[in-house]
Design a protein around this nucleic acid. Sequence first.
DNA 1: TCTGAAACGCACTGCCC
DNA 2: GGGCAGTGCGTTTCAGA
Lengths: 163, 163
Amino acid sequence: MLTVKIIEGFMDKLDSTDITILRILQKDSKRTAKEIAANLNLTVSPVYERIRRLEKQGYIRKYVALLDKNRVGLPVTAFCQVAMRFHESSFIEKFEEQIRNIEEVQECFHMAGKVDFFLKINTESLEAYHDFVKYKLSKLENIGELNSTFVLKEIKHTSEFDI
Amino acid sequence: MLTVKIIEGFMDKLDSTDITILRILQKDSKRTAKEIAANLNLTVSPVYERIRRLEKQGYIRKYVALLDKNRVGLPVTAFCQVAMRFHESSFIEKFEEQIRNIEEVQECFHMAGKVDFFLKINTESLEAYHDFVKYKLSKLENIGELNSTFVLKEIKHTSEFDI
DNA sequence: TCTGAAACGCACTGCCC
DNA sequence: GGGCAGTGCGTTTCAGA
């Protein structure tokens, strides 16, 4: 005979209350359960439990403070497009591992198409970007082409998702 | 006669204590002032006051919950490179304003070089991306060229700055 | 600037519906 | 699933050094 075990937390669809909570917290994680509860015409307990559940189930990854890049002295943002010379998985994996450990790299994506990787880099100056390319990026093996473009102005940059 | 007024909060250099606090909070904003104080061999009050000051002086922009894009149903990430047809400031400004109001757009940068704008887009599927381009992006006036590439894998993506 | 102490509110738990 | 009440803990304020 077959025993079907219902894994707790597996049936984790979001209802509209969950979505409201996520929308609020991704805008401002300092909002208290009490305030959120007031928005939802609920008491604190269910809101508190739902937040815990959303964390446990992985909808909420983490809580962070977002800093001002100009204030902390990293005003220069660049996108760097990298094409690899060889595409064997061992080369790719090594490159990815090395990229993860470079502090200037804020984002790195493996892309479909002619360019293999998109990197978003933050530095304190254009000269510091030069140093980054010269002493860190170009030191990695297996880089074929490398093309940098600089951000003139940030038009929009949000950590929120449209849920 | 000239009166020189010292604006309060203008002399706001960061010392090593401030930097430690910022490093901790941009990793995990739920860390308590008590825990941070223990790290710094301080009591709670100065840590608390410094955090308030860092917020007021704009080093800390906001506190947010970061969600998992796959969990919330937006697994497809694309970069879209847009070149404008005309470059008069009125056209540019209008375009920027419209871009800010499109929910799928997570990041948008005005770039130096041949391509005018870099957009990072999140959608629930490739088809939804198609709809985004067809019904939203290409409806904007003044778009010259448009080139989309898709993220195969996110290698690194952090909200932290290397301070 | 920091220490220490005191007041307040919120996070968190347990029990009820 | 949600409401209600209690406890501890963190935040917040303030005097003093």
